[in-house]
Nucleic acid binder design. Structure first.
Lengths: 111, 111
DNA sequence: TTGACATGACACTAAATGGTGTCGTATGAT
DNA sequence: ATCATACGACACCATTTAGTGTCATGTCAA
């Protein structure tokens, strides 16, 4: 759980569950910062919807924004993804030890 | 995206977004296989709700099940988590290069 | 200053989500 | 045979979600 500057709690797993939001992160990863309308052109949805996805990413601490004239420029902050990285690392052993586990499973029934 | 044996498509990110489902995966990681009622005792919700969470995990390919008498035994299959692992690895560079990026950010405005 | 642009805030809607309780059925125990 | 257990399927409900359109505001340009 991440608590952002507005006090809104947003789970990073939840923020990342949506493919549009993952796409937003990827777009922001390629550029230093991007305004809303530059992001919007990559989607089949309206500007308002993209803005709301960005708000959710902000709540999870995955993006920051700053006003630049009449634009709002969005920037990636990948740090909260460490939590997911650590979480998934725990399960690595289950596919690293795959061959060993298969041996153990021999002789048991399958579904 | 993972297509399971029933043809139901379920995004692994989506399956993992719920904390109850992550807890289920963790419980299954500690045991070889567990029946539904053994899992249910760890939650503040009814058996039906846990069953539905397990169904979602099955749709994502993260658990398998087999009938054993009147029980259904659930087992972890961590393989689909590779997709998340690969995805999050891409963003690793952003916190590894953190110091370098901070240098680049000097002199720019903050929100 | 007038107008176009970029955005946030708001009200609204359809659909998905996470939970409940109940019922039917197959299984195991007495 | 009877009864309790373990479960899936189903109907149901409240809340959240992802999208829409509209409006108000602030900013850049002519």
């Amino acid at each position: 759980m991440v608590l952002n500057e507005k006090g809104v709690e947003r789970d990073v797993y939840d923020a990342v569950a949506d493919s549009s939001r993952r796409k937003l992160l990827r777009l922001l990863a390629d550029e230093d910062e991007l305004p809303l309308y530059d992001l919007t052109v990559h989607f089949n949805m309206g500007r308002t919807a993209v803005s709301k996805h960005l708000a959710i990413l902000k709540e999870a601490g995955l993006v920051t924004s700053r006003k630049a004239g009449r634009e709002t420029r969005y920037r990636l902050n990948a740090d909260p993804l460490k939590e997911i990285k650590d979480w998934v690392t725990f399960y690595e052993k289950f596919w690293i030890d795959r061959v060993d586990r298969l041996k153990n499973l021999l002789g048991e029934d399958n579904e």
